[in-house]
């Protein structure tokens, strides 16, 4: 059995809870996963305790202060043992997975949603088909979140290894997002509006619900292209972001194939649309045929009641 190594998913210098799902994915390959935490300060690795790994290594380097693909790959390569490597599937982690794989002359399989008997399944053609591959020898695999149940238990002790990598790029300027809103790529619940919202001002109704339940607000391309006030960073779909939340609420969105490409793997989908024949309803767990003007106030009141 090959050795498996999990690279912890980091968020604001802390181990992201989805890392425990990656350990669980590594467990399906057998072996006893080693969890490597890229950090600038070993204290940042404390969150990795009890996530099911047999060994925890804090890979400590100034190179990890900002993401730089070549610096991170070099610094991790020096610490990560040989074996099959598992990473998260955020844009940054997929980038790192590809660089680490190339550094070791390995292949990389991105966006795994199933690992079974050594076979790895991931969506292709924008989710219109599933591809299952088998690997001979070691590979690097990025694993989607919300697919594997988080692992628990395992090591709590962290050993620290100093490492370094040459950082090539530098940040000249950081432009904070105009709003403090959660990004759709990071959210567990997303409420998105389409052209059916009628005007960008009506997105305040979506924002109000988002604030109540801790959701991010997304949009269809038609909304982004039609209204200047709706930035491309909110766009979900083929040429926007691919999201995989627990809950996706589509409001006034028809459900074009390119929109589905970005959200069809959401665990639960709610659709609100006045047209009973809108394609989005074929993908909804709960479909409400109504105008948003009718449905959103009711939805908001009910959710408020539940949140106490």
């Amino acid at each position: 059995m090959t050795q498996t190594i999990v690279i912890a998913e980091m968020n604001n210098n802390a181990v992201h809870p989805s890392t425990a799902e990656l350990v669980s994915a590594a467990n399906t390959l057998g072996g006893e996963p080693t969890l490597v935490v890229p950090c600038t300060d070993a204290g940042q690795a404390s969150g990795a305790a009890g996530m099911g790994a047999a060994t925890i290594i804090a890979a400590k380097s100034g190179a990890f202060a900002h993401y730089d693909a070549s610096g991170w790959a070099e610094a991790l390569d020096a610490v990560v043992p040989q074996g099959t490597i598992i990473t998260g599937a955020s844009p940054q982690s997929k980038d790192l997975a590809a660089r680490l794989a190339a550094r070791r002359n390995l292949s990389v399989v991105q966006d795994a949603v199933k690992i079974e008997g050594g076979s790895i399944t991931s969506p292709v053609y924008s989710g219109k088909a599933m591809q299952t591959v088998s690997a001979s020898g070691d590979v690097v695999v990025s694993v989607r979140s919300n697919v594997f149940a988080p692992a628990t238990g395992g090591a709590t002790d962290v050993s620290v290894i100093d490492t370094d990598g040459n950082v090539a790029t530098s940040v000249q300027e950081f432009m904070a997002r105009a709003s403090e809103r959660l990004d759709v790529a990071e959210a567990n619940i997303i409420i998105s509006g389409g052209r059916g919202m009628g005007s960008p001002d009506n997105f305040t109704h979506l924002e109000a619900i988002a604030d109540t339940i801790g959701a991010a607000v997304g949009a269809s391309r038609a909304a982004v292209d039609t209204w200047e006030a709706i930035p491309h960073s909110m766009q979900v779909g083929q040429t926007g972001k691919t999201v995989n939340p627990n809950l996706y609420i589509a409001v006034g969105i028809s459900g074009a194939i390119q929109h589905l490409a970005g959200m069809r793997s959401s665990k639960y989908i709610v659709a609100i649309n006045k047209d009973a024949d809108a394609p989005i309803f074929q993908h909804a767990d709960y479909g409400i045929v109504a105008t948003w003007e009718e449905a959103l106030p009711v939805l908001h009141e009910s959710l408020k009641g539940m949140m106490g």
């Binding site: 693909a69 997975a97 660089r99 794989a101 990389v108 991105q110 991931s122 292709v124 989710g127």
Partner: peptide
């Protein structure tokens, strides 16, 4: 593929 592997690799 949807992969995003080729550039960084």
């Amino acid at each position: 593929t949807g992969a995003g592997s080729t550039g960084p690799g």
